[in-house]
Computed example of a mutant assay.
Amino acid sequence: MTRRQRGFTLIELMVVVAIIAIAAGVSSLALRDADAKTLDQEAARLSALLESARAQARAAGLPARFELASAGNTDGAFRFVNLPPAVKMPTQWLDSRTSAEILGARALRLGPEPLIGAQRLVLRLAERNLTLATDGLGPFVVVETPRP
């Protein structure tokens, strides 16, 4: 006489739990807020641009800086000042609704010194904020935005 098994094995249960976890992870990524994704892209792009300009300023020995456009300026949302003429940098945000504020200064200093001092910039899109900061030695990175 053979006994018939009832129920599921541990392996079968683990496979089902793994499939559910993968499905939940994929669905949470698909439901991500579009503004948050756009702001993350803006921050990554601006961080790369700032580091590129910083390297160019150091290589050329020029006191370069990053400035936001003043009210009424139609040339762009921001500009890189005093880089070598051959270096062409963008002047617009990826999303026209993006705005920024440099904390505690009119511009970000980018060089030519290797130590540029601690600096912060807040990016805003709709209700979202991201802060890019450097301690003056390391690169510009996204940091926790302080709550008001």
Rank of each mutant, 00 (worst) to 15 (best):
L121W: 00
L115S: 11
L125R: 03
L31A: 08
D135E: 03
L46S: 02
S28W: 13
E12G: 07
L137R: 06
L125V: 04
R4F: 09
I20K: 11
V81N: 11
L110I: 14
D95G: 07
A59W: 10
F66W: 11
T145C: 05
A105E: 08
A48E: 13
L125C: 01
I102R: 06
L94Y: 10
A44C: 05
V81T: 14
F80W: 08
L108N: 02
A24H: 08
G76S: 10
L125M: 05
A21Q: 10
K88F: 13
R4Y: 09
R128G: 04
E127I: 05
V142M: 00
T2E: 14
G72W: 04
Q119C: 03
A23Y: 04
R124G: 04
L62K: 15
P146F: 03
E51G: 11
P90T: 10
Q5P: 12
G104M: 07
R65N: 14
A126D: 15
V122G: 06
A23K: 04
D135Q: 03
P85K: 15
A36S: 11
A86P: 07
A100E: 03
P90C: 09
V26Q: 00
L123Y: 01
D35N: 09
I22L: 13
T38I: 15
A118I: 03
V17P: 06
R58W: 11
D95S: 11
R109N: 15
S47A: 14
G25F: 12
A118N: 09
T134S: 01
E101K: 13
G136N: 01
A34W: 05
A86C: 10
V142L: 01
G138P: 00
R120H: 07
P90W: 07
P63D: 05
T91R: 12
R79F: 11
I11E: 02
K37F: 12
Q56A: 15
G7C: 09
T9R: 06
L68M: 10
P139D: 04
G61N: 05
K37N: 14
F140H: 00
R6L: 13
P63Q: 06
L132P: 00
A100M: 05
G136F: 00
I22F: 07
R3V: 09
V142Y: 00
E51N: 12
T145Q: 06
T38C: 02
L125S: 00
A133N: 02
L121P: 00
Q41E: 08
L29G: 08
A64M: 06
L115Q: 14
G72R: 03
P63N: 08
A100T: 06
L115W: 09
